[in-house]
């Protein structure tokens, strides 16, 4: 499951809408091992394409070094599909090179509603996972995510 702040999701969707009809892409970094995405970094789509995205290699080096310096890793890697569903294409699967990342896809094909889905992609195998949007990471329970189960 991907647990992510609603405000970060909103920022990802805003980025995807802004770049539509080109694909938008970016990263949400977080502390290593935390599985908690905290720092949204919109990236340039060096391909500037409606059907392909590619991080600029020099921007990527700068951002990955910055994460390294801050003891962060890419928790979320996202991009948009602008005319098709939010599901990884064969190209997405072939390129998926961060085994710890949640791959988030946003579809902006419908003008009024945005589809957001999250996947793990490991060794060419795609596994969809639920997206749990929370108001804050400070509390275990929020109005849109309440877990009443007791620990055994």
């Amino acid at each position: 499951m991907l647990t992510i702040q609603q405000a970060i999701l909103d920022a990802i969707v805003a980025h995807a809408r802004r770049d539509h009809p080109d694909e938008a892409c970016g990263v949400v970094a977080g502390p290593i091992g935390s599985d908690t995405p905290t720092r949204h970094i919109p990236m340039d789509n060096a391909a500037r394409s409606m059907t392909f995205y590619q991080f600029d290699s020099m921007e990527q080096l700068r951002v990955w070094r910055e994460m390294d310096d801050r003891d962060e890793e890419p928790i979320v890697i996202y991009h948009s599909h602008t005319a098709t569903e939010a599901y990884p294409s064969r190209t997405d699967v072939a390129y998926a090179g961060e085994p710890n990342a949640h791959y988030v896809l946003v579809s902006t094909r419908e003008p009024d509603s945005t589809e957001i889905r999250s996947f793990r992609i490991l060794d060419g195998v795609v596994k969809e996972e639920p997206v749990n949007a929370v108001q804050s990471y400070m509390f275990g329970q929020t109005p849109n995510s309440v877990d009443y189960e007791c620990q055994a």
Binding site: E23, C25, M43, A47, S49, T51, F52, Y53, Q54, F55, S57, Q60, L61, W64, R65, I77, H79, H81, T82, A83, T84, P88, S89, R90, T91, D92, A94, Y95, A96, G97, E98
Partner: peptide
């Protein structure tokens, strides 16, 4: 430094 290239998209792989 070796990094995984981050790329993809809706387009087919050959293209």
């Amino acid at each position: 430094t070796i990094l995984p290239a981050v790329a993809g998209g809706a387009f087919g792989f050959a293209a």
